[in-house]
Amino acid sequence: MASATPRSTLTLGGRPLHAMLVPIPIMCFAGTLITDIVYWQTAAMLWADMSDWLLLAGLIVSVIAVPAGLIDFLGDARIRKLRAAWIHAIGNVTAIILSIFNCLIHTRDAYTSVVPSGLILSALVVVILLVTGWNGWALVYRHGVGVRQTEQP
């Protein structure tokens, strides 16, 4: 029976894997911006160290979360007809590439690991995630991607 709304290809128990995992890197990269700002203002090293760990954790989980999203993107042609899906996909891939650069910049020692390049990249990534997040919510809540249609009793 064909689904009325675009389906997610990579699911676990009917739940899209991408949607399950993606909040983790989103919060890690958002957290990185916060710890970067606090480090910028205080120069207290624990905040820079936290940025390092958050960036690494976000990238590690993205290794699964991003390909999961790409599999969904490629798995149903109806998704690729949605403009929101293209913005979401291209934007998130860009965010990951920038986060890899950001992770490397954060390996520097002391202040210049964050100020100015690390902080700028962290902020840029969060702006991108706001845009891709907005479009991601549209994919689910306006277009029903991955949502099972059931008969109303």
Binding site: A44, M45, L46, A48, D109, A110, S113
Partner: peptide, 8 residues
């Protein structure tokens, strides 16, 4: 105790 105070 560091390269350039990265341990505080």
């Amino acid at each position: 105790n560091s390269n350039i105070t990265e341990n505080g």
